[in-house]
């Protein structure tokens, strides 16, 4: 049986390890790399090496950064007393894009998922608790995905943080802007109804 030359087979194998990439996609990506010029291939390789060498976690909020403390944590114009807790750096970026939140963040690094074996010890929870002991927090905003695990994490955090006498809020869940009531599922509608507000 004809097989790829070893270096090419190795590249296909490495691409296959990426999330959402199967054998066919890995093969397609490897053949794309083969068609790149030497310079383009080197740029790609350097970018991967550089991100591994330079990017780490912010010592305060655990967002990705290329310095000891991320840009948001260093920004003195932002409120130190309003902390938005997110599960993932991508969620931080999503909230940051709105331009509405002017406080600082804390990235948990995931959500509680008992079936996956992810509990409080696997999250940056004790770091959050330690951080909250050093500041006079006015509000903790919980911004987890509206999934079963996200809701459970928010519920757990809210209970825990309230014992410290903190004001804890959660972002609203319900019908998305541009959505259609008729097409909304019942779970979303129930949450939207429960979260209705006075007008």
């Amino acid at each position: 049986m004809v097989q790829y030359a070893k270096p090419l087979a190795r590249l296909v194998g490495e691409f296959e390890k990426l999330p959402g990439i199967g054998p066919k996609s890995a093969q397609r990506l490897a053949f794309y790399v083969m068609r790149l010029s030497d310079e383009e291939a080197k740029t790609l390789g350097d970018a991967i090496a550089e991100v591994k060498a330079k990017i780490g976690y912010c010592k305060t909020c655990y967002n990705f950064t290329d310095q000891e403390e991320c840009e948001i944590c260093r920004d003195s114009r932002r409120s130190d007393t309003h902390i938005c807790v997110v599960a993932d750096p991508r969620d931080l970026i999503a909230i940051e894009k709105t331009g509405e939140f002017r406080g600082k963040y804390h990235v948990l690094g995931g959500v509680l998922a008992p079936m996956e074996g992810i509990g409080p010890d696997q999250l940056k929870l004790r770091e959050l608790l330690a951080r909250l002991q050093t500041i006079e927090a006015e509000e903790i905003v919980l911004a987890m995905n509206p999934s079963v695990e996200g809701d459970a994490t928010a519920m757990y955090l809210a209970k825990l943080l309230k014992t410290l006498g903190l004001r804890v809020t959660q972002i609203a869940h319900g019908i998305p802007v541009g959505g259609d009531l008729d097409y909304a599922d019942q779970a979303t509608l129930i949450q939207a109804y429960d979260g209705r507000r006075e007008m």
Binding site: G56, Y57, K59, Y62, L112, P114, M115, E116, G117, G119, P120, L125, R126, E127, L129, A130, Y156, K159, L160, T163, L164
Partner: peptide, 30 residues
Amino acid sequence: VRSTAFLDAFRLGAMDDIDSLMNPLVPPTK
């Protein structure tokens, strides 16, 4: 059964105990 550990910790009240959650504090690594 992975969720067993969390259920046991919850029953013992360990998940709500801030002191046991705080210790030991592992320093962040890259």
